[in-house]
Each structure stands twice: as structure tokens, then as C-alpha cells.
Amino acid sequence: MKKTLLAMGLAFGLTTALTMPAFAQAREVTFTTELRNYAGDGAYLALYLADANGRYQGTLWVAGGKSKYYKHLSGWARGSGLNAAEYDGLTGASLASGRTMKITLNLDDALIDSGYEIRIDTAVEDMRDHRADIAVPLTSEGSGQPQAGRGYIQSFQYDL
């Protein structure tokens, strides 16, 4: 999965004072999410960027096709207001138990080492929801460091 997130800066500009210079440098970032082996259907995941206070800044990826389940990804749902414009073109299939998902996005350099964190909310039909299954700061040192999640996520890492 490879997606270019050129519109990212624009989207952020709406919610924060962090306006992107038009000539900002973009960098390829790969997000790797591996799920535990749990007994249940495919998981819905929302990867999003939050500020240091945990406030939603923008959507990175949503795994899971049925928007009626999105409200179970409650931290992200709250932040994005479930506004379809927030996640347009950033969705894919749900992720089955034990499987790994790799996403590569072009992220603005300015987002790194600036106090942002990556969060992932997860949900599985008929099972509990995990808000902020993962919450890790987006920093240069953090790159390539696997982190265990609290819920369905076995490990998560990003590679700058």
C-alpha cells in the first residue's frame, strides 16, 4: 500500500496553527502493524496523528470497509467527527487476526520530532474496542522501534 499524502498539510492547517510552507519536504514513512492471534473477525483500525495532548490532527489510514462500524474506533471517530472528507482515499480492507499490514505514506518532514504522536484505535465485531491501542510519539529515535499495543496489536513500528 503506497499512498502519497500531499494534501496532509492542508488538512492539518484547519485544525492547528501549524501551517505548512508550500515547499515543505516530504518523506516516505512505512507503518507496520502486526495483530495478535485473537479469536474473532477481521479488525478495524484507524491510524491517526494526534498532538501531545492526544488531540486528533489527521487521519493516516483506516482499515475496514463498513463505515457503520467506524464509531467503534472512538478516539479517531471523535476527532475526525466521522467526516468522510477526513478519510477519503485513505481506507482499505480490515485486517485479519495474526496478519501484518504495511502502509507507506509521504509525510511532511515538519511533523517529525514536533511533539506529534501516532495513535491507533482498534475494534473487532462482537469484541471490545481499544481506543489508543497504540500511542507512540513520532520521533527520529522512535523509528524502527517495535512497540507492543494494549489490545489487538501485537507490535507496531514506523520506519522513517
Binding site: S67, K68, K71, A77, R78, G81, L82
Partner: peptide
């Protein structure tokens, strides 16, 4: 048709 169940906005 499936009923829309988005619930109220935050």
C-alpha cells in the same frame, strides 16, 4: 436498505 446508525456527532 440498512438503517443509518451513525449516531449523533460529537
Amino acid at each position: 436498505p440498512e438503517p443509518v446508525e451513525t449516531g449523533p456527532a460529537f
